[in-house]
Design a protein around this nucleic acid. Structure first.
Lengths: 125, 125
DNA sequence: GTATTATTGCAACATAATTGCATTAATAAA
DNA sequence: TTTATTAATGCAATTATGTTGCAATAATAC
């Protein structure tokens, strides 16, 4: 299955590039409303995730956000163990530099980590 | 609005007590299947959360879990800044002792934290 | 035992996401 | 450039999850 470039894909991709941070499904849907079907958005975002163009982040309020992989992740090593920050003021979602460190109980094995901090970013404080 | 004790409530409550750790909506539904309506489960769990009997935890995979408040939280001070652990082997969800510490960028303000570690517990390792 | 009203079950509704399928259009080949 | 192949799209229908309205039921207070 070889991918093809389409207007839908470039529209969503440039949206993510211009945003500079993660966008929720909702936000993306609102931006491209009318231009394409809702189903197409789902499929485009899924294909981006499959191809490693973006990754899906589930926020602490249960919404999916999509972020370009180069933005904040070392895609080679899949180091996703950093904090994610969600600003309740401007809704911005971003990846923080700081890594999450956790000491698990005896015998426990870590597979993955999902850490969210909610609050106000510098601009909204 | 004064609460009443009903079979539905005691069934679900003892389920949570016997489990000893957090249970997902799904798990609870599966356990009491046939005994009561799906809507009743929702309403009972909601009332438990309103009354401070349980609290709702949104897991890293987007599912709600319900845990007895005494189990792992100091309800007085609402200190929810500990790690949550989800075992991909036995599906168990529990609250870890370890507190989450994060150094936010300059000017950022923290409101709340949600931290999940996924992996294998001691029994499933 | 009787009255009050919280709780329940059922049906209908709401919302988010997925699937099937015919149509459209991006790419490769002639 | 034209034609063939099949990925991508739009639409309708479906699934999954949670909520609401309302009449019937049953827990508590009197």
């Amino acid at each position: 299955m070889k991918r093809r470039n389409t207007p839908a894909k470039s529209t969503i991709l440039s949206l993510l590039k211009n945003a500079g941070n993660a966008l929720s499904q909702e936000m993306i849907e609102a931006e491209v409303k009318g231009e394409m079907d809702r189903v197409t958005i789902y499929r485009v975002l899924n294909s981006f995730c499959e191809d490693g163009v973006t990754h899906r982040i589930l926020s602490d309020e249960g919404k999916y956000y999509f972020a370009l992989c180069m933005d904040c992740h070392d895609h080679e090593h899949h180091t996703h163990d950093h904090f994610h920050f969600r600003c309740v003021g401007c809704q911005k979602v971003e990846c923080l530099e700081e890594q999450v460190t956790v000491q698990l109980p005896q015998g426990y094995r870590k597979e993955s980590i999902s850490s969210w901090v909610t609050g106000y970013c510098a601009a909204c404080s």
